[in-house]
């Protein structure tokens, strides 16, 4: 259950940020989309909305919230499960509630507010999706949102970070069917996060050449992964000479997207927006460089040999 940010702006009178710190990580999320705007159905803006923040510690976002629920670290999944039971009036033991680090009153109040909302939204951040439980936490929250629709309108959406990572997700889905963690080594896309996801591939040493664009794994990945990147030929496209470029066999400087390279980027709610660059770069765009590398590869003899056009059953 998700929606575009314009829907939130126009309708959401109950907003929950879960495991995120928008005040510092997505500063304009409050003012442009979620909390402050006066809109069609919420003419008084902030006054017409209630904001609840669920996080493990007090961040700068607490100041903007009406209610702050400090969940015990690593207990998000438990809290969501308790809430799922409570909205359906299922029995919950005190021990189960105590485990979440919150009181019965706090939770009852939260449930009452959720049910009283006309249009509720959960925004969940890395604090939920990247801590213990990982995607299970996100799935549980999505289920809670789905189940809330028995009472009122409710949606949930991730607070995607980092530039155009949403665009990559969307494009891989329409071209390959899968959002990330893909292998083409049998000539068609296969998906297996944990096997084909980059950190796992690098830690196992399962690649013999890495092409890196718009990312700096040299600064963000665990040490064994970086060690493997140093061993194999690495090609980096980046507007700057980065940690990763320093260990690369080939570095190509490109124009930064949106500053001096034109194109499209997807917003976190999967709406594509055109970029309007302000500067002329002395460097080529990523698009041009990747296309030229691809065309150079295409000119070399096809390594695949004879294959059927289609498999009715995948192997």
């Amino acid at each position: 259950m998700t929606c575009t940010l314009g829907e939130v702006k126009n309708r959401a009178d109950f907003i929950v940020y879960w495991g995120g710190n928008p005040a510092e990580c997505h500063p304009r999320h409050f003012t442009k989309y979620a909390l402050m705007p006066k809109s069609q159905f919420l003419p008084r803006g902030r006054k017409d909305r209630t904001m609840v923040l669920v996080d493990i510690r007090e961040t700068k976002s607490v100041k903007a919230s009406d209610v702050f629920l400090q969940v015990r670290p690593g207990k998000d999944f438990e809290l969501i499960t308790v809430l799922r039971a409570m909205i359906k009036d299922q029995p919950i033991s005190e021990a189960q509630i105590a485990e979440t680090g919150l009181s019965v009153e706090q939770l009852q109040d939260f449930v009452a507010r959720m049910k009283a909302a006309r249009f509720g939204v959960f925004f969940f951040g890395m604090g939920l999706s990247m801590t213990r439980g990982k995607h299970m936490n996100s799935a549980a929250l999505l289920t809670l949102a789905a189940e809330m629709n028995a009472f009122t309108k409710f949606v949930a959406m991730p607070m995607r970070g980092h530039g155009n990572v949403t665009g990559a997700d969307v494009i891989m889905r329409w071209q390959t069917g899968y959002p990330f963690g893909i292998s083409f080594n049998r000539g068609y896309p296969r998906y297996n996060p944990g096997e084909f996801s980059t950190v796992d591939v690098l830690v196992r040493g399962d690649t013999d050449c890495a092409f890196i664009i718009g990312a700096d794994p040299g600064a963000t990945m665990p040490k064994p992964a970086i060690e493997h990147l140093k061993r194999v030929p690495t090609i980096v496209l980046d507007p700057h000479v980065t940690h990763t470029s320093k260990m690369a066999r080939v570095h190509i400087t490109t124009a930064p997207a949106g500053i001096s390279a034109p194109g499209t980027a997807y917003r976190m709610d999967e709406i594509p927006l055109p970029l309007r660059p302000a500067l002329e770069s002395p460097y080529p765009s990523d698009e041009e460089v990747v296309r030229r590398i691809k065309e150079t590869i295409l000119k070399k003899p096809d390594w695949m040999g004879e294959r059927p056009q289609m498999l009715t059953t995948q192997v």
Binding site: G167, I212, A215
Partner: peptide, 29 residues
């Protein structure tokens, strides 16, 4: 790998290149 700080147009080229190479393809996600 990567594809976060770049344009959709470049990402499409990356997917096509990976497809042709029989490569592993992964994003920041």
């Amino acid at each position: 790998y990567g594809m976060s700080n770049t344009t959709c147009e470049a990402q499409r080229e990356c997917v096509e290149m990976a497809d042709h190479l029989g490569a592993l393809l992964d994003s920041h996600t």
